Simulated scan of single mutants.
Amino acid sequence: MNIREVLALNLRKLRQVKGLSQEELAHRADIDRTYVSALERSVYAATIDVVDNLAQALGVEAADLLKRPSRSKSD
């Protein structure tokens, strides 16, 4: 899984856990809703500043958005 896919997975998961729409998250992070959508689909690579804005809007650390899922022993 590449880093764009990791960000996409974590971003979507955390956004949904927080009960936020893409539009609301975009507003809180001061970015465009279509950009949030593109990030969640691994279309764009986010800058570190965007990752930080998204993390702040979600109330998490930026590292949480870039953390790779743990692999099971069967992988």
Results as ranks from 00 to 15, higher is better:
14 L>W: 04
5 E>T: 12
33 R>V: 12
54 L>W: 00
71 R>E: 12
36 V>N: 01
32 D>I: 08
54 L>I: 01
49 D>H: 05
63 A>Y: 12
57 A>Q: 13
42 S>A: 15
22 Q>I: 02
70 S>F: 05
69 P>T: 13
41 R>E: 04
35 Y>I: 03
74 S>R: 15
62 A>W: 00
27 H>C: 05
31 I>G: 02
10 N>P: 13
26 A>P: 11
60 V>D: 03
51 V>H: 03
35 Y>C: 03
49 D>V: 13
74 S>V: 07
46 A>G: 11
34 T>L: 01
48 I>S: 05
50 V>C: 06
68 R>A: 06
22 Q>L: 03
26 A>Y: 10
16 Q>A: 15
19 G>Q: 09
73 K>M: 13
70 S>Q: 14
73 K>S: 14
36 V>I: 15
46 A>D: 08
38 A>I: 01
40 E>R: 04
32 D>R: 09
56 Q>T: 10
10 N>I: 06
41 R>Y: 02
59 G>E: 02
71 R>V: 12
12 R>L: 10
72 S>E: 15
28 R>H: 06
3 I>C: 06
63 A>F: 08
21 S>T: 13
12 R>T: 09
13 K>F: 13
40 E>P: 07
8 A>S: 15
14 L>P: 01
33 R>N: 12
3 I>E: 12
16 Q>P: 02
15 R>T: 12
31 I>L: 14
25 L>C: 05
7 L>P: 02
61 E>W: 07
26 A>S: 04
11 L>I: 14
64 D>H: 07
3 I>S: 07
74 S>H: 05
54 L>K: 07
27 H>K: 15
26 A>F: 14
58 L>W: 00
3 I>D: 10
11 L>F: 02
60 V>C: 07
71 R>N: 06
29 A>L: 06
66 L>D: 03
22 Q>D: 00
44 Y>N: 14
18 K>E: 14
69 P>L: 05
37 S>M: 09
67 K>Y: 10
12 R>F: 11
60 V>T: 08
12 R>K: 07
36 V>M: 09
47 T>D: 11
36 V>A: 04
23 E>P: 01
42 S>T: 13
44 Y>R: 15
6 V>M: 07
60 V>Y: 00
43 V>W: 00
16 Q>T: 10
32 D>K: 06
24 E>F: 08
60 V>I: 14
39 L>V: 12
61 E>R: 13
2 N>P: 06
45 A>L: 06
58 L>N: 08
45 A>R: 14
27 H>A: 12
29 A>M: 05
41 R>M: 09
14 L>N: 08
26 A>I: 11
46 A>V: 08
26 A>L: 03
10 N>F: 08
73 K>R: 13
63 A>Q: 11
43 V>I: 15
3 I>W: 03
62 A>G: 01
68 R>V: 15
70 S>W: 05
24 E>N: 10
59 G>S: 08
59 G>F: 05
48 I>Q: 04
16 Q>W: 00
53 N>Y: 07
64 D>I: 10
